[in-house]
């Protein structure tokens, strides 16, 4: 079941002597919706996801947080002091770290998640193979997880989290190593989760974020400079060109679609959008 996610006035310092990595963030992510976090390097995208996954205090015991989090009915003053898996589950930016290395095949690696949760089903193939198929990696089921390419590893790491059916799915740069085909598959999966899973993801490819998210957060230096719908952000793209340069906007289908009607280059743009 999807959980609503509420962040109230969240601030974080990696240590009391350092400046704030997150500064008074407040966000409300409705249950079953998708929120994408965009922004330049060092804006706080990964930091926020680690706060929500409950991994911040574990990895940075000296970090100092204030504010509140609410995941479904559970409220935390400051940050949770334990990892929230599988209620909230984070797919890490570096998928290699996530592969356990103790299982011989991709299939067993995915099963390992269920075993750790004490939820291994009688016929795991029925659950795992369709999931691998949706991610386009069913042909890798018998391969060694540590022998895969970057894009393949990224999808195995994602499958190992998706199989746990978290209420809140946190994705840190999920498209960084994916080819265009694999990105299409991920997009379809995220669309299918709408209504049943709350998704929060960071992505430097704003095209992907704009196409999939109900809500966009634009972070800069740890603060939210914009929160709203993709179309509201696009209509204000020029305002944020110092944070997200024009080249990035031009690479987005949504931006070009919005230009289609206003620029007088309707024919050219529709051709570009249709062309493979």
């Amino acid at each position: 079941m999807a959980h609503r996610l509420i962040i109230e006035n969240l601030s974080l310092q990696y240590s009391s002597s350092e400046p704030k990595a997150l500064s008074s963030l407040s966000v409300d992510v409705p249950a079953g919706s998708c929120c994408a976090i965009i922004g330049p390097t060092g804006a706080g995208k990964s930091t926020l996801l680690h706060c929500l996954a409950g991994t911040m205090h574990r990895q940075h015991p000296e970090s100092v947080a204030s504010g509140r989090l609410q995941l479904g009915e559970t409220r935390f003053e400051g940050l949770p002091d334990h990892i929230l898996f599988p209620v909230a589950a984070l797919v890490l930016q570096d998928p290699y770290v996530q592969i356990s290395g103790v299982r011989d095949t991709v299939f067993e690696e995915i099963l390992f998640t269920l075993e750790n949760l004490g939820a291994a089903p009688q016929n795991p193939r029925k659950i795992i193979m369709p999931l691998l198929q949706r991610l386009g990696i069913d042909h890798l089921a018998n391969r060694k997880p540590t022998s895969l390419s970057g894009g393949e590893t990224q999808r195995v790491a994602l499958a190992a989290i998706l199989v746990a059916q978290p209420s809140i799915l946190l994705l840190d740069e999920p498209t960084s190593a994916l080819d265009s085909n694999a990105q299409d598959k991920l997009r379809a999966i995220l669309r299918s989760l709408r209504g049943t899973t709350t998704v929060m993801m960071s992505d430097t490819q704003i095209d992907f974020a704009l196409a999939i998210a109900d809500q966009i957060l634009l972070l800069d230096h740890g603060t939210i400079v914009f929160a709203g719908s993709p179309s509201a952000l696009l209509s204000r793209a020029r305002e944020y060109s110092s944070i997200i340069p024009v080249e990035s906007w031009l690479a987005t289908q949504s931006f070009l679609t919005s230009l289609q009607t206003s620029s007088g280059h309707q024919k050219l743009i529709s051709k570009a959008l249709g062309l493979q």
Binding site: D179, S180, E247, T252, L268, I269, A272, L273, Q276
Partner: peptide, 15 residues
């Protein structure tokens, strides 16, 4: 090879 040209390149070529 199952690859797509990115949008700015498609636009540039058409233009």
């Amino acid at each position: 090879a199952g690859l797509k040209l990115p949008l700015p390149l498609r636009l540039e070529r058409l233009a």
